[in-house]
Structures are given as C-alpha cells and as structure tokens.
C-alpha cells in the first residue's frame, strides 16, 4: 500500500507535556482512515502534526518523500488540506466568501480570481449542497450547514489529501450521517485520501476503510474495521465492556456497550 503522507518516530509535545513519543504512522493512499481512541490519547495531536499545524519535537512527517516542515507551506497546502476542530468564521462572512478563501494557496497577489478558482469553488459548493446558501452569512447557519460550509472550503482547496479533526462534533445524528456520507463520496467519486478523527465507534467503522486505534500516545491497532473493532480491543483501549455485532444495515461492526452495573440501566 502506498502512503504519500507518513509520520516517522514522531515525538509530539505541548511545551513540557509530551503527548506522543516515538510513533510511526502511514496514511494509505485513496482510503478513508479514521483515528479512534479515548479522550486525551493524542489523536487530534497526531492529526495536527500530520497537517503540519504542530511541529514535532522529534521525528518527521513526510509528504511525497519530503519533510513537510522543510517544504514551502504553500506547496503543502496545494496537496494537503486540514480542517481543525470547530473553526470559527468572522462575523458577516458569507458561505461563498468562506469557500473562496479555500483557494488561498492557489492565488497570487495578481491572480486573485482565475477561471479555475471559480470552477473549483462552484464545484465545492455544489458538492456539499451549499450552493443555495452561498450568500448567507456563515454565523447565521445551523450547525450542520456550517460544518458543510467549512468542508466545502477544504474541498475548494483542491487537495488530494484531507485531514478532518472531529468533523461531526456538535452535530445531531442525522447531520453526522450527512457529513460522513459527504466524506465517503469524496473518497468514492473523487478518489481523495481522507484522515479523520471520530468519536462514534460504529460510525467510524461504517465510514472508514481503515481504523487506527490509539491509546496513551501509541497506536494499539490498525487495519480494516472488522479486524480492529473487537471486544478485547474495546476493553483494553477504552475500558469499555461491549459486544460487537454486524451492523444489520451495512454489515460493518456495530459496538453495543454492555451495562457496567445492574443499576445503570432501567430494569
């Protein structure tokens, strides 16, 4: 399996606080990879490092064989898009304005709005079903629409690789499905490589080709969802007693948490 984006011997820290120490990871091309793990296990930190938002204190991130921190950041931005967790837009910014800003790495001071920019922005809006909302201010949208607008911006960036940090936070289930369907289509119809961090394990299993399970800054398991999501792994990574059954709708693993004590469920 080819991997254009890789991390080697990563040591990641915030100030004195080491989060990840000596981690290797490959992002397989053309797949949707989802990182799962309990809160504080370092999954968002890893995603930030892969997206060069966080400089590793040791080891390196390689993009197409070059060290990402030694590649001009604009060049990286044409290949790799990153969407941080719950980003905020300035008040009054419209959806179209926001999506247009995704073209930033392709624009020069003289060439602010090429034909290509226009097509990509229109495509991105259409893809995310946001065309009808193009002239609405982002802050006036519902949570689900807002997230689609941001994904639309990341799409307009036109990158082969896309890193999404918890794209479904604060969304209700229907909108979570909406966003994840979109991600799936990105992969299926446009062949993009996507890495995302998700909390819902069953959704992660349903929408990912490959799962990476993390605990305490280490990768505990990786592979196809039905190989990774086992009761034993759930117990050791999340401290969760659970049954894993095939999802009646899709056949992917479905996690059913078991009650911890007799009193924690209604009789």
């Amino acid at each position: 399996m080819n991997a254009r984006l890789r991390g080697e011997g990563l040591h990641l820290a915030y100030g004195d606080l080491t989060v990840i120490d000596g981690l290797d990871v490959d992002v397989h091309d053309g797949l949707v990879t989802t990182i799962i793990g309990p809160n504080g296990c370092g999954k968002s930190t890893l995603l930030k490092a892969l997206g060069r938002l966080l400089r590793p204190t040791g080891g390196q991130v390689l993009l197409d064989g070059r060290r990402i921190d030694r590649t001009p950041t604009r060049d990286v931005a044409r290949v790799l898009g990153v969407l941080p967790q719950s980003p905020t837009a300035p008040e009054g910014l419209t959806v179209a304005d926001l999506v247009m800003r995704g073209r930033h790495p392709h624009q020069t001071w003289f060439r602010q709005w090429s034909r290509d920019d226009e097509d990509q922005v229109a495509d991105a809006l259409r893809w995310t079903d946001m065309l009808a909302y193009a002239d609405r201010p982002v802050d006036a949208l519902s949570g689900g629409q807002r997230q689609r607008a941001w994904i639309s911006m990341a799409l307009a960036q036109g990158t082969d690789l896309l890193l999404l940090d918890e794209p479904t936070t604060f969304l209700d289930l229907a909108h979570q499905i909406d966003v994840l369907d979109l991600v799936r289509r990105l992969h299926a119809e446009m062949g993009r490589t996507v890495v995302m961090v998700l909390h819902d394990l069953s959704l992660a299993a349903r929408y990912a080709d490959r799962l990476i399970a993390m605990k305490d800054g280490r990768i505990v398991a990786s592979g196809a969802p039905d190989e990774v999501l086992t009761p034993a792994l759930l117990e050791s990574v999340f401290g969760l007693r659970a049954m894993v059954v095939p999802d009646p709708a899709t056949g992917t693993p479905l996690v059913i948490p078991l009650p911890r004590t007799a009193t924690s469920v209604r009789a």
Binding site: K48, G51, R52, L53, P72, T73, R74, D75, V76, A77, R78, G81, V82, L83, P84, P87, T88, A89, P90, L93, L98, R101, G102, H104, P105, Q107, W109, Q112, A154, Q157
Partner: peptide
C-alpha cells in the same frame, strides 16, 4: 498592506485554518 490583505483574510479564519491554507 496590500500584500498583507490576502494573508489577513486567511488569518481571520483562525491561525490553524490559515496554516492549513498554506499561510505562514
């Protein structure tokens, strides 16, 4: 200032998004 304007547009989306868009 003129050179700075597009960069400031990227920055106004937050520093992480700006970095993601290839803005130093």
């Amino acid at each position: 200032a003129a050179v700075n304007a597009p960069a400031l547009n990227a920055l106004s989306l937050g520093e992480d998004v700006a970095r993601g868009l290839g803005q130093s």
